[in-house]
Design a binder for these strands. Sequence first.
DNA 1: TCTAAGATGGGT
DNA 2: CCCATCTTAGAA
Length: 216
Amino acid sequence: MNISAYEKLPLAFYKRDDVVQIARDLLGKILVTHLQGKLTAGRIVETEAYNGRNDKACHAYYKRTPRTEVMYEEGGRAYVYLCYGIHHLFNVVTNEEGLADAVLIRGLEPLEGLDQMFGRRNVLSRKKLTSGPGTLSQALGINRSMSGENLGGSSIWIAQPSDINDNFEIETDVRIGVDYAEEDALLPWRFYIKENDFVSRKKKKTPTESRGLKSS
DNA sequence: TCTAAGATGGGT
DNA sequence: CCCATCTTAGAA
């Protein structure tokens, strides 16, 4: 696919107030990087919303710090941070300046530049290429130095798919790895495309389902 | 300065 | 289940 096929979402998409809705809307969109002449892209299949004002799981909840400064900027930028000293996690900053919301991208279905992705990651299977927040960043060449990048620029952006493929079912669940957030750990702010292979962790099956029987 | 803990992922 | 790995934020 030619680079011109990946048309950037408008700034207004990111500047909306409802980060939970934006997290849902990002499913099916395409995350694209163009670095050192190499184009890579993947369809977004899993997201999580984080709200800086009423969500204890959000990095910007307790106070404003140098790391989270970019989350307070106007929507439409990348917030990338290092997790566990190893993984670079990519977020989309949303809302107006001063309101620190973001959407974590947790899973991608690889679409373009697969050879490049395999080169950046040390795996052989396509399924392991981009099915997690840390791995997808590695596959697309995203790292912490890109935090603050404008998604309206030429190295990283999000595109509307050309074949308007919104024919999928959305599953909702609690977010992963935020047990420390007390009652906010229970917020149903994780969204993913049903039965997609590139979702990082599937919903636990009920005992009935795992025996291959119909659930009630 | 010092240190605990983390929005993970890969292996056993 | 275990643990690599190192920044960040908060404490001292």
